[in-house]
Amino acid sequence: MIEFHQVTKRYDSDHTALRQVNFQLNRGELAFLTGHSGAGKSTLLKLIMVMERPTAGEVIVGGQKLNSLPRRQIPYIRRHIGVVFQNHQLLFDRTVFDNVAMPLEVMGASPEDTGRRVRAALDKVGLLSKEKMNPLQLSGGEQQRVGIARAVVNKPPVLLADEPTGNLDPELSADIMHLFAQFSQVGVTVLVATHDIALINDMNRRTLTLHQGQLTAGGGVSGH
């Protein structure tokens, strides 16, 4: 589902964020991406989201080579990738429902369809009763779950999470990881960037480790 072939990303100022990274994630796989801060985790996620383009090498998502993707095709790729952020990026000028509905709105889904799918996603994260509230009225863990509902509402084949449990206590973090595991069971490829080692050890999943832009563990194809 996600393939990196010899991917290097260099920023202008001699700063090399990624060096010849190789790995492949299959459909339905849940993997962690870890490393000290500045090791290139965010850069790697940005390459998948086409927020950045690699300096060298090839990034392939869902069989689509992203290097040669024209700019105006980028939105259509992003519709197939759900993203969860540490600071969840919710909009506080609208309800929980409207926040979750955004990915469907940009796709031009009908109101009936939107209602059905948003409620299904909110139900999945256990927030169905709070759809009419403003995200500001919710706790940190709940806000994060709204972010997750928004990321999965259009059933993307790929789900990325950047430090999704950064601000949460261990119990809430475990809840959220459990949600991610559920998504991977229904075929979603999930990649979670985190430095929460305890959490990674608990889950016992494949872990990609970055060290100064190089993949030092978990590379290649899964199972190898």
Binding site: M49, R72, P75, Y76, I77, R78, R79, H80, V83, Q89, L91, M102, P103, V106, M107, R150
Partner: peptide
């Protein structure tokens, strides 16, 4: 956010 979730 709109650009992030695939808004053209």
């Amino acid at each position: 956010v709109a650009k992030l979730v695939g808004g053209t």
